[in-house]
């Protein structure tokens, strides 16, 4: 008995060694702007499960949505008509690690600008004004976020998003079930795992549009400006994306894209979007 117990004790040693190894590991940084400029190609991390922002088309594997169109427009604005935008699918959980790993050059994935995330990545100016809201089954007694503030109430949110913290703040008695992406969350709502799903209104309207039994209620109870993101320290890249955003706003491309994706959504205020 004591022999295998001793082995258990030694088990911890390699783990500590790994930690030390990690601490020593040096990460080399490259200049994303110079690299993407000479390649005339930007690799964007986008959503693949979010209607209106980024949704994969099963027919051809293409991802379609506002974020995708905007990223394409920015790429061409920065590096010319023949520049290429490549899209890699991310989830709320994977987007930051992918950016930090260098698998993607920039993120356009309905990502809220938060102080917490600002510590590890750099944001451009806000490009989309969203706010957190609730999606419920039609006829649900839940009308606003305060209705959730009861013990035993379960709300679905996506792991690693601001929605989780906000529910803790606005409805501290509710229990948050954190799932891995929006499809899983909505699936859980449909399966009755909770009474509401919460995230930004734009995403919820996208789901409600395809699922008429569900509706967005209670208006927005937070302010969630979306920003495009680059890895910490890529200031040159960020400055050029900001400039491209300004130019697209000035020449009307930006408004055209907003209108294309959000113009026909009932209950959605396009003006709010454009003034984040």
């Amino acid at each position: 008995m004591s022999k295998w117990f001793k082995k258990v004790l030694i088990a911890v040693v390699p783990l500590f060694l790994l930690t030390v190894l990690a601490a020593c590991g040096q990460k080399q940084t490259d200049n994303v702007y110079q690299r993407t400029k000479s390649a005339k190609k930007i690799v964007w991390g986008v959503k693949a499960d979010t209607r209106l922002f980024g949704l994969m088309n099963v027919k051809n594997g293409d991802i379609e949505g506002f974020d995708v169109d905007l990223a394409k427009a920015i790429t061409k604005q920065m590096y010319g008509k023949d520049a290429q935008a490549e899209f890699i699918q991310t989830t709320a959980k994977t987007k930051v690690p992918l950016l930090k790993n260098g698998n993607i050059d920039a993120v356009a994935a309905a990502m809220t600008i938060t102080d917490k995330r600002k510590k590890i990545i750099d944001y451009t100016q806000p490009y989309f004004g969203a706010g957190q809201s609730l999606l419920v089954k039609k006829g649900s007694p839940i009308k606003a976020v305060r209705d959730l503030n009861k013990a035993g109430t379960k709300v679905m949110a996506v792991k690693g998003t601001t929605a989780v913290d906000n529910i803790h703040k606005f409805a501290p008695k509710a229990k948050v079930l954190e799932l891995d992406d929006y499809a899983q969350s909505f699936t859980a709502l449909k399966s009755g795992q909770g009474v509401a799903m919460t995230t930004d209104n734009g995403i919820l309207y996208g789901i409600a549009k395809e699922n008429p039994d569900y509706e967005v209620v209670g208006g927005t109870f937070t302010n969630e400006p979306y920003g495009l993101a680059v890895d910490k320290g890529q200031t040159e890249m960020r400055a050029h994306i900001d400039k491209a955003l300004d130019q697209l706003q000035a020449n009307g491309t930006y408004s055209r894209l907003v209108e294309k994706w959000f113009g026909g959504i009932p209950g959605f205020d396009v003006k709010e979007v454009e003034q984040p």
Binding site: V8, A11, V12, L15, L18, T19, A22, K93, V96, P97, I120, K159, G160, V164, D165, E178
Partner: peptide, 22 residues
Amino acid sequence: DALASATFDTFNTYLVVGVFYL
């Protein structure tokens, strides 16, 4: 995992979780 997603301290969090399993 929720902890790692919230704090971004993936490395240490997963190590601790691993020790718990072990």
